[in-house]
Design a protein around this nucleic acid. Structure first.
Lengths: 118, 118
DNA sequence: TCCTTAGTTCAAAAGTTATTGAACAATTGG
DNA sequence: CCAATTGTTCAATAACTTTTGAACTAAGGA
């Protein structure tokens, strides 16, 4: 951990909803959910927006408490705060992700990737 | 029915999330959910915002497909589009409302009302 | 050390959303 | 018909959000 994150109980429902209401950020969250457990760096999302703009959107997600960003070397390892979100808003994240997965008009990242087993 | 409403399949997830991301609109939706089945008119929400501003927020909810507004006399009878929302985004509305109910910092309407049986 | 990679910060511009008051329209009760 | 009630529309403004590019920092490898 390094950058400012809200604690679990500081996570606000309207802010989370507003943050997820942006298609770029929703695409980021969907991808994080699909790769759950695997910390990703920002470069994974470069087909969604410019580097600068991504920095902005990732900060919004972090400040809302949706993601956690850890500085490791020159990278930021980004993970979904599923535990905290599920505790605060049970069922919300799953229903949002399921709804997004059912909508082919939404932007997405890494939808054509090869699964690699450990 | 009278004013323009999206059809069920035109309801967009990011738009619904963004619309619910506003505390005033979230309060309206919560109240509609609590009074489910009972069509309400705008005056019920006057403690949340001015008449003009309410008209704006109620239009946003209607245009997003979250509510249905029917003109009856000089009133608008407003209902939650629960059926359509549940079909498009299963579980979403319930988890949002449950999360909102658990947050005492959010604005609310009609929380101290007398239940009247039919 | 120098260069590259990874991402941030800043200020500006563009775009969008929210809020306001005044004026308007439609319905209904007296 | 008149007045009151219910809500909308409009234009203005205020307040945010998003997007951009240029400049920057920090770590790591050659």
């Amino acid at each position: 951990m390094s950058l400012p994150h809200p604690t679990a109980d500081q996570i606000s429902l309207p802010i989370v909803l507003a943050v997820l209401g942006d298609p770029t950020r929703l695409a980021i969250v969907r991808y994080l959910a699909r790769k759950e457990g695997v910390p990703l760096n920002c470069s994974k999302f470069l087909d969604l927006a410019s580097k600068t703009n991504l920095s902005y959107h990732l900060a919004k997600l972090r400040e809302a408490g949706v993601t956690r960003s850890e500085a490791v070397g020159t990278s930021r390892l980004i993970t979904l705060r599923r535990d905290d979100l599920d505790k605060r808003f049970p069922g919300l994240l799953d229903s949002v992700i399921a709804a997004a997965d059912g909508d082919s008009t939404l932007p997405a990242v890494g939808t054509s990737e090869v699964e690699v087993s450990a």
